[in-house]
């Protein structure tokens, strides 16, 4: 047997073990934070204030960019749909195509990617810089748990705000489709929205909301985990931030596949 073969197996095994350990770490950080949010009534008031502050940054602050991007995604979906559907003379199906693809998939996914770029990276950079400048050590020596002080409020903020942003992006995506519908599809405003409403069921929106909730948790877990594991030096902060973005996108896509498959097999949230 050639010596490269066991090496390959060893590396594959090592890689798998590393990946599983990383996911285990994410589960640990998530569980710990959620437990802290539930179990520290004395600190809840201040924790809540910090969560509201985070929610403003990650949620409200993201509205303009999420709105703009998902509006244009709606326009693009309508244009691409119309290109094919017009050949079949089925232009009346464009609103349904846009609504279903945006609410079930693109709204939550695009929102997650924007949130990764804005907030996931910021979490890693913020916590990583605090590690480098000994601020995390300072918190610890002041008897303040960095998990309770920094991480838990971020989880609360993201778990609430990412689904809200996803619903908003659904609306903006439909608005984008409507923009094309009126200008190029011969629809009236009310006509477009009536067709959209008739083509959507609650589970279309709910599957997106459920996915977004999980996306929010995963983006926070990866961002904070990368920040906390930052080594010494400014270069390490850069590495942590890049890893946070790349790994978050990968995790979000993987989770999306799993959830979409589950919804497909179970016929959605019925």
């Amino acid at each position: 047997m050639s010596p490269t073969r066991p090496n390959l197996l060893v590396r594959l095994g090592g890689g798998t073990e590393g990946a599983l350990a990383y996911v285990g770490g994410l589960a640990q950080i998530t569980g710990k934070s959620l437990a802290l949010l539930v179990s520290s009534p004395l600190k809840r008031q201040r924790s809540l204030e910090r969560a509201v502050h985070q929610a403003m940054k990650v949620g409200v602050g993201a509205i303009p960019i999420v709105s703009l991007i998902t509006f244009f995604i709606g326009v693009i979906m309508a244009l691409q749909g119309a290109y094919e559907l017009s050949k079949l003379g089925a232009m009346q199906l464009v609103p349904a195509l846009v609504a279903v693809s945006i609410t079930r998939e693109l709204g939550p996914l695009i929102t997650a990617i924007v949130v990764i770029g804005r907030s996931g990276s910021a979490f890693a950079a913020e916590i990583g810089t605090m590690r480098v400048t000994e601020e995390l050590d300072a918190l610890e020596t002041m008897a303040l748990d960095p998990m309770a002080f920094l991480v838990a409020p971020k989880f609360l903020a993201m778990a609430l705000m990412v689904p809200c942003l996803a619903v908003w992006s659904d609306f903006m995506g439909v608005m984008g489709g409507c923009f094309f519908g009126i200008l190029g599809g011969g629809f009236s405003f009310t006509g477009y929205f009536t067709t959209t409403r008739n083509s959507l069921v609650l589970s279309d929106v709910m599957t997106g909301v459920v996915k977004s909730f999980v996306f929010g948790l995963v983006i926070t877990a990866v961002g904070c985990q990368e920040g906390l594991s930052t080594g010494a030096g400014a270069e390490e902060v850069g590495r942590a931030t890049t890893s946070a973005v790349v790994l978050s996108i990968l995790m979000v896509i993987l989770i999306d596949v799993v959830f979409t498959l589950l919804f497909y097999l179970t016929g959605g949230l019925t």
Binding site: E126, T133, E134, E135, D137, A143
Partner: peptide, 20 residues
């Protein structure tokens, strides 16, 4: 540890003030 740390004060080399 937390009880002991409340009776300690530590001034770090670079200050380690919370930047935010």
């Amino acid at each position: 540890k937390a009880a002991l740390r409340r009776k300690m004060g530590i001034a770090f080399q670079g200050g380690a003030l919370i930047g935010s």
